[in-house]
Simulated scan of single mutants.
Amino acid sequence: MTYIEINGSPATADTLRLPALTSYGHFTAMQIRDARVRGLDLHLERLRSATRELFDGDLDDERVRADIRHALDAADVRDASLRVYVYWPEGDERATLMVTVRPPQTMPTGPKSVMPVPFVRELPHIKHLGGFGQNHYLTAAHRAGHDEALLTDPQGVVAEGAITNIAFWDGTSVIWPDAPSLLGITMALLEPRLPSARRPVALADLPSYRSAFLTNSQGFAPVRRIDKVEYTVDEELMGRVSAAYEAVEWDAI
C-alpha cells in the first residue's frame, strides 16, 4: 500500500487532481531506515535546483524535511521507500509537495542482464516526470528477459540506465560514463569514495572492461551481461563498493 500526503495533509480526490492531470514536475526517491536517509543534502539540493530551473522558484529545505517527517509519522513507519514530488501550478505562491510512502526496498543483489536501447532522456540532469521513453524501453528490456535498459545516443555512446547509473571497472578505476545523464544519489555518494574517473564509453568499448555494476536509490548490483558482452562478477570490486556504500552515514530527516 502507498500512503500519500500533499502539502502535509492526507491526499484527497481533490488534491490528487493536480498530480493526476499534469506531468510537469520533478521528484527525488530515497530509502528511509529508522527515519534516516543517506545523502540527505544531495536530495535537498536536487529538489532545490530542479525547482529553480523548472519553476524559477525557491524551495525551503525545512519544509521538505517537515513534510517527510509528517508523512512518516502519519503512516506510522520509520523504514520506507519514499518520494518527494514537486509541482508548481501557475499563479500559486509556492510549490505543491507530494510525499509518497511505500514499504522499503533493496535492489536484488543478483547479477543483472542489461539491454542497450537507442534513447536518451530530455533534460537528463533533472529527475523529472513524464518519462515515457525510458519506461517504454525498460518494459521492452523486461519483455526480452533483461533486468534493465541501457540508454545510448545515436552514435552508440552510453549515458545511463533507464532507472540506474552504470559504472565500469577497467582493473584500476571505476569508470562512470561522461555523457548527459542524471547524477544519481548513490552514484554521487560512491564516486568520491572509490578510485573513480569519468570518460566517454561507447558500446564498442564494452568488451574492454572487466566488469560493471548498476546503482540507484535502492543500492547497487553487478552486471553479468550487456547485450552479447559477458562480464565476470568481480567479488573484490563489489566488496569495495559495498564497504564504501556502508561507510556512508545516515542523516536524520
Rank of each mutant, 00 (worst) to 15 (best):
91 G>Y: 12
60 D>K: 03
77 V>M: 10
99 V>L: 12
71 A>G: 07
52 R>T: 13
97 L>P: 05
90 E>S: 13
71 A>D: 01
72 L>C: 10
73 D>W: 05
40 L>P: 13
106 T>R: 02
57 G>Q: 10
82 L>M: 11
106 T>I: 12
33 R>P: 11
69 R>M: 12
72 L>N: 04
53 E>L: 13
59 L>R: 01
77 V>D: 11
40 L>D: 09
115 M>A: 15
42 L>P: 14
108 P>H: 00
98 M>D: 03
49 S>R: 09
43 H>P: 15
102 R>M: 15
93 E>H: 11
101 V>T: 08
56 D>K: 06
94 R>T: 10
70 H>G: 07
89 P>M: 15
90 E>Q: 05
82 L>G: 01
100 T>N: 02
112 K>D: 11
68 I>H: 04
87 Y>S: 00
86 V>G: 09
101 V>R: 02
89 P>G: 13
35 A>S: 12
66 A>K: 06
103 P>N: 03
115 M>P: 15
101 V>D: 04
98 M>Y: 01
102 R>N: 10
89 P>S: 14
38 R>K: 15
105 Q>R: 02
102 R>D: 14
100 T>L: 11
101 V>E: 04
104 P>S: 00
57 G>V: 11
49 S>Q: 11
90 E>Y: 09
55 F>V: 11
102 R>K: 06
41 D>Y: 05
52 R>I: 14
110 G>P: 01
34 D>N: 09
49 S>H: 09
100 T>Y: 04
40 L>A: 07
103 P>H: 02
83 R>F: 00
67 D>K: 08
80 A>M: 12
79 D>M: 07
101 V>L: 13
80 A>N: 07
38 R>P: 14
112 K>Y: 11
49 S>F: 08
113 S>A: 09
33 R>T: 13
86 V>A: 03
75 A>N: 06
52 R>W: 14
44 L>C: 14
71 A>I: 03
115 M>L: 15
80 A>R: 03
91 G>I: 14
74 A>D: 05
114 V>A: 12
46 R>D: 05
38 R>L: 14
75 A>W: 07
108 P>M: 00
43 H>L: 08
66 A>Q: 07
